[in-house]
Write a protein that binds this DNA or RNA. Structure first.
Lengths: 156, 156
DNA sequence: ACGATTTAGATGTTGCGGCATGTATGTCAC
DNA sequence: GTGACATACATGCCGCAACATCTAAATCGT
């Protein structure tokens, strides 16, 4: 097994485990990782469209998150209204309940990141980040991430 | 966004994209990534049990890959027979067609790794591997990987 | 103004991961 | 030997990712 192959499997294993733990943390909130991430993004960037959300979520371009938002709307966390200026678009906003829940999601994320930070320990992260960033920069999902960082960099 | 959080998202993004490309490469073979990985492992380690396979696959322990093997068996790539010594166990072996297909899977994997190697370029991978390995070592999916490396290290 | 193209989103389908549960077989204590 | 437990696997369920396809609304060229 060469380096690249091992890297591939490590990434797979870590993603699965991270997702599993994130899911476990979110379960009391009755949210899945996908829902939690979407809710959190909507709360931060509202009002936004489904397309805008899809551009920030790490998922295939061309796939829009309408069904994830379906569930958030059904749970009363997100409101959908068609934009009167462009009736194709849907304006996503967060309800008070949704804002509250988004804060809880953030707490779960912090906890998860704390666990991960423990696994990292005192090892340097920069070399790994540099490598992964440069790999991810070559495709849409990676650029979604860059977009998110640019957006949050301007917030306090 | 701190380092750990960015690392988490990068891993998610890279896993998704890698999976997407792997799926694209396997599509002509009529296999999904999960099926391809399972078939490849069975071909390498046959005869093996479902549990043994589950231990090498990067998936949650407690979940066994019986349904993935279902499809491989339905496609005539894998044979299942109950072990007469322990009738709970299923002996998995590969059919000639399956062996052939496994070789094709391997070719697709090589191609994928080639693409990834291009993304890596001349950057050093060791620091990233060290970090990710040490993180993955803390949970089952990561140890599945170690197990696989130990097994393949003995093969020519 | 009108038809062609583009865009935003909805929806159907497939296979998968994870969790829970069920069932059969083997093992162990006594 | 019999009952309690453990193990190996199967299966039902949910939500998701990816792909394809569809509808409606906007935009563009002429």
């Amino acid at each position: 097994m060469n380096d690249v192959e091992e890297l591939r499997y490590l990434i797979l294993a870590l993603q699965r485990e991270g997702n599993r733990r994130f899911a476990a943390g979110l379960r009391p909130l009755d949210l899945t990782p996908a829902q939690g991430e979407a809710l959190s993004l909507i709360a931060t960037h509202e009002p936004m469209t489904l397309n805008g959300l899809g551009g920030l979520l790490v998922c295939d371009s061309g796939t829009n998150p309408s069904r994830i938002v379906d569930r958030l709307a059904a749970s009363g966390l997100v409101e959908r209204e068609t934009d009167p200026d462009d009736r194709r678009q849907v304006r996503l906003t967060v309800t008070p309940l949704g804002r509250d829940r988004a804060a809880q999601v953030h707490a779960v994320e912090d906890e998860l990141d704390g666990m991960l930070a423990e696994l990292v320990g005192d090892q340097p992260t920069e070399p790994a980040l540099t490598l992964l960033r440069s790999m991810a920069a070559h495709f849409p999902a990676g650029r979604a991430l860059q977009r998110r960082q640019q957006l949050t960099a301007h917030s306090p």
